[in-house]
């Protein structure tokens, strides 16, 4: 495997990691707020808080890691995306900042402040919508280079059906992934009341998710036919994704093997995400940036890959410890340590 392929694979894995952990986080924020306005806070809020509190900071790192890695491995992306995305990028930063700050304010400071929860919950849905427009831009035709100036064509971005179908998919899949995970977590906590509500959310959002996925699939054909043809060649991956979806929802419906059910959700998105990504190659920004022509110099590429491996040696055991203490520890999940501590 060439160094540039290692680079982009690493980045894509981290983006996938962000997609999953951030979806859980964003959806949880929305459900948290929704439970307040529907007077169900006392039932599901504790479960959500118990999971999110120790991990929210980690979620953020996945995104930071992705874009720092992107600029590191493919420095040309800084010039194109950086120049063109000033406005949408800044809006995304502002939303992320509001969300992160008000999450902390509402969870550690003023626990019953509805405004803080609203800010935290609402931005959680706006962020995936904002970030997902980058997927449209990467298909080409929206960032144009004229006389050495790099410009973003807003009318093309907002006029494309592909943009809107991606935004729709990001919104519903956030709620789907999140409620699937939280159902599993509530079940493990033996909190059957919360489980009942969250299972309802999960089943409800599964339909729109798969419909939106189909919509995106066909909208790519309009936006970038070459990419669509590449995706058809990897058709089995999308088939596998659909199969995982069916089994995952079936298991939740039957209330059996919820751990397996969530693993299948992970696989559902992994197949679709990596199938999409592989078909996108070699372009990071069609047709300006390709992984082969715009890879960083050899010395930096090698250094980054070495740093990456060294980093993983430290990170994987640490992440494992985090999960053991807060995800797979039955006593913690059931809330046995909560009162004694802070």
């Amino acid at each position: 495997m060439s160094l540039e392929l290692v680079g982009i694979t690493v980045l894509w894995i981290f983006l996938y990691g962000y997609l999953i952990v951030a979806s859980i986080d964003f959806g949880a924020g929305f459900f948290s707020y929704y439970s307040v306005i529907t007077m169900k806070k006392h039932i599901i809020h504790k479960i959500i808080e118990r999971y999110l509190s120790p991990v929210w900071e980690v979620t953020n790192v996945f995104l930071v890691f992705f874009y720092i890695g992107m600029v590191g491995f493919f420095p040309e992306t800084a010039r194109y995306y950086g120049t063109a995305l000033l406005v949408p990028g800044s809006v995304a930063i502002i939303l992320l900042a509001i969300r992160g700050a008000y999450y902390a304010f509402s969870n550690y400071g003023s626990k019953d402040n509805k405004w803080y929860m609203l800010l935290y919950g609402a931005t959680g849905l706006l962020i995936p919508a904002t970030l997902s427009t980058v997927l449209t831009i990467s298909e080409g035709g929206i960032i144009v280079e004229q006389n050495g100036m790099i410009l973003l064509d807003w009318s093309k971005l907002l006029g494309s059906p592909y943009t809107w179908s991606v935004i729709l998919l990001s919104l519903v899949s956030v709620l789907y992934i999140s409620s699937m995970f939280l159902s599993f977590y509530a079940y493990r906590a033996k909190d059957y009341l919360a489980f009942g509500i969250l299972r309802g959310y999960a089943l409800f959002w599964s339909g729109p998710t798969i419909l939106a996925s189909l919509l995106v699939f066909f909208a790519i054909n309009q936006q970038n036919p070459e990419h669509f043809r590449n995706m058809l060649n990897l058709g089995w991956m999308f088939g596998a994704s659909f199969l995982c979806f069916l089994v995952a929802v079936y298991l939740l419906w039957k209330k059996i093997k919820l751990g397996l059910s969530f693993i299948l959700v992970l696989l559902q998105f992994a197949f679709a995400f990596f199938g999409y990504g592989k078909a996108h190659l070699p372009y990071i920004l069609f047709p300006y940036i390709s992984i082969h022509e715009n890879f960083t110099n050899q010395a930096m590429g090698t250094a980054l890959v070495i740093a990456f491996i060294a980093g993983l040696v430290i990170l994987i055991p640490s992440l494992f410890l985090l999960m053991r203490l807060f995800l797979f520890d039955a006593d913690y999940v059931q809330g046995k340590f909560i009162k004694k501590g802070d």
Partner: peptide, 10 residues
């Protein structure tokens, strides 16, 4: 981030 989460809740 990982260890801060662990530290604060243990």
């Amino acid at each position: 981030a990982i260890f801060l989460g662990i530290y604060l809740y243990t």
